[in-house]
């Protein structure tokens, strides 16, 4: 809802249909990739990971697309399973983060004191290095899925909380909200009927943009050995293990899992940004 003033006497005009088409293509390609991944993950979930010592250290081939590791395990299956777990943890943590952000953002907008406390918290969290805090929280909670989940959830909310706070503050001052008060509606009613629908697009975009961070940080912490345990097929574990074999020339152990992680993360990022442009209030609603 924040209105940016146009630079005086300069006017922009981009092709409307072209932009629309571009947005559709972008979403379609991302959706296709995610669909492919989902099919792959479903397939991989049904495949047992077998150790086959005769098939050790094979480079990528038609039978083993991502190659095999030092125990003869199929890296494609491991990668897909690992990604799935990482994605689940990332999604859950992202959604939890968004919930915290919403709660604190709305709380901040409700009063002067609450605002001071929440703003202080936001500044505090933003001033600390992300990863250090995340490792700390994960460590305190004893690591594992639970540790990583809360660690990521508790560190990724501040920037979204700030956006929600600003939006809510601005909405509270909006004329139609003030009028609604004079029409006899209480704040709870106004929050539900007027404010939430305005915040929803922001929230959706915010959550989508937190998810890639959450996934990467989960993988990062796990890679450093302070996240998911070594028995779990997490992408961070796979990458950490591959480091030991990289020097022996087994490049595929790191390359394919790493690349897959990157693509998935980029997909979410792209989706979030496209949606952001779509819900941008500057764009005229036709």
């Amino acid at each position: 809802m924040i209105r940016k003033a146009h630079t005086f006497l300069s006017f922009r005009s981009t092709s409307w249909s072209a932009r629309r088409l571009q947005a559709w293509l972008s979403v379609a390609s991302v959706a296709l990739l995610l669909l492919l991944f989902a099919i792959g993950a479903l397939w991989a979930a049904g495949q047992p990971i077998v150790t086959a010592l005769t098939l050790r250290n094979l480079p990528p081939s038609a039978a083993y697309w991502f190659g095999t590791d030092w125990l003869g395990r199929d890296m494609l299956i491991r990668t897909l399973q690992g990604l799935q777990l990482s994605l689940q943890v990332g999604l859950a943590a992202g959604i939890m983060s968004a919930a915290i952000a919403t709660l604190l953002g709305v709380l901040a907008a409700s009063g002067k004191w609450a605002d001071r406390v929440v703003s202080w918290l936001i500044d505090l969290f933003l001033s600390m290095p992300h990863l250090v805090l995340l490792i700390l929280i994960s460590f305190i909670l004893g690591g594992g899925v639970q540790g990583v989940l809360f660690g990521v959830a508790l560190t990724h909310w501040p920037s979204l909380a700030r956006v929600i706070r600003a939006e809510t503050l601005q909405l509270r001052q909006a004329e139609f909200i003030q009028v609604s008060r004079r029409m006899g509606n209480n704040w709870l009613w106004i929050g539900w009927h007027h404010m939430l629908p305005h915040l929803l697009p922001q929230l959706l975009v915010g959550t989508l943009l937190i998810i890639p961070h959450a996934i990467l940080h989960e993988a990062g912490v796990t890679f450093l050995g302070m996240g998911l345990s070594a028995q779990q097929p997490a992408i961070g574990i796979i990458l950490a293990e591959s480091m030991r074999y990289l020097s022996t020339g087994m490049w595929w152990l790191a390359l394919f899992p790493g690349l897959s992680l990157l693509i998935i993360v980029r997909c979410f990022d792209r989706l979030g940004h496209t949606l952001q442009r779509w819900t941008d209030p500057h764009r005229a609603r036709n």
Partner: peptide, 27 residues
């Protein structure tokens, strides 16, 4: 902006981050 100029409806068309003298010089 050269031969045909617009005096816009709203003061919001001024760039809030630039001194007004400079904005007029740009014009």
């Amino acid at each position: 902006g050269m031969d045909i100029a617009l005096v816009p409806q709203s003061v919001a068309y001024l760039d809030p981050l630039m001194p007004v003298g400079e904005q007029v010089r740009h014009a």
